[in-house]
């Protein structure tokens, strides 16, 4: 009973992080209409910034490391948007920005390999990794609870920003009708940069938390990108709640399948996704 509960908690926690990754990607896709293939690299770069900072200055508190990684990645995401993606978007052909982000992904991935090496790295969070909580008869690890808490808070915050702020209003208007939004005097390019930075920050946040849970290598970005895609496709564009639910479905699938088939990797996650995708496509419920 405790084991199953622990497993489910692990799955939901992992799923929450998947949801965060997917929400960032959905935001860029919804507002920029760009399939951002470098999203996975921002996740690993976030994780590696945290690993690097902790190695250089072990006394810095975990929370500060997390904030720093998010801020740096957000800046990087905004910079990439201004320098490359926004320019590529001028060509009107959606293939061009998508291919540009693919080029950026390859560059970032290999820059990471060149600077940090190709090894798997984990993030040491000291006592937090061993700490546990007692919930009635069940004892559970503190780290998954904290991680899940952060994911939930981030989701609630994101939904509130989209729902209630001027920025959120502009984001929704842009993803509804980009040309009419421009007509309304919205500074479109500026919103694009903000969205790219926000998505990159979310990616980094998830990356750091994933590195606390298990190791990350510079090549992990590709599989995270694929998971982010799966979350976006399952959860629907522009739906933060959908992203969370889709993330949880995939996370629980991964943890449960790893439990009964230890070397399955992401096989069952992909199978679940592919089946749902095909079912939906066959029944015509796919945009």
């Amino acid at each position: 009973m405790t084991a199953l509960f622990e497993l489910l908690l692990q799955g939901v926690t992992l799923g929450g992080l998947y949801g965060v990754i997917g929400a960032g990607l959905a935001l860029t896709f919804g507002v920029l209409r760009v399939v951002n293939l470098s999203h996975g690299e921002l996740i690993t770069i976030g994780a590696f910034i945290a690993v690097g900072v902790t190695a250089l200055a072990p006394t810095v508190p975990v929370l500060a490391v997390l904030v720093l990684a998010c801020a740096l990645c957000a800046a990087l995401g905004g910079l990439l948007q201004v320098a490359f993606v926004e320019r590529a978007m001028h060509f009107r052909d959606p293939m061009v920005p998508m291919l540009v982000t693919f080029g950026i992904a390859v560059i970032l991935r290999n820059l990471l390999v060149e600077t940090a090496g190709a090894d798997l790295r984990g993030l040491n969070v000291g006592g937090l990794a061993q700490a546990s909580l007692q919930l009635g008869p069940v004892i559970i690890g503190a780290l998954p609870v904290v991680t899940l808490g952060i994911a939930v808070v981030v989701f609630a915050g994101l939904a509130a920003v989209i729902r209630h702020t001027r920025f959120g209003r502009e984001v929704r208007a842009l993803s509804d009708r980009p040309d009419i939004a421009a007509l309304m005097g919205i500074r479109v390019a500026r919103v694009h940069v903000k969205v790219a930075a926000l998505a990159a920050g979310l990616a980094a946040l998830a990356g750091v938390l994933l590195a606390m849970r298990a190791s990350v290598s510079p090549y992990s970005g590709v599989s995270y990108l694929l998971i982010a895609f799966e979350v976006v496709v399952l959860g629907g564009l522009g739906s933060t709640r959908g992203a969370f639910a889709a993330g949880v479905l995939l996370g629980v699938t991964q943890v449960l399948s790893a439990w009964w088939d230890s070397n399955a990797g992401l096989l069952y996650v992909h199978l679940v996704f592919f089946s749902i995708l095909v079912l939906r496509a066959m029944t015509g419920r796919l945009s």
């Binding site: 209003r169 502009e170 929704r172 509804d176 009708r177 939004a181 007509l183 309304m184 005097g185 500074r187």
Partner: peptide, 29 residues
């Protein structure tokens, strides 16, 4: 943006309202 700042505003054919925004938000945008 420059056209809007110069004082030109469009009521487009087919209205093209923002469906994800409430009526008031449409008016505020």
């Amino acid at each position: 943006r420059a056209a809007a700042a110069a004082g030109l505003a469009l009521v487009p054919e087919g209205r093209l309202l923002f469906d994800s925004l409430s009526v008031e938000e449409n008016l505020m945008i």
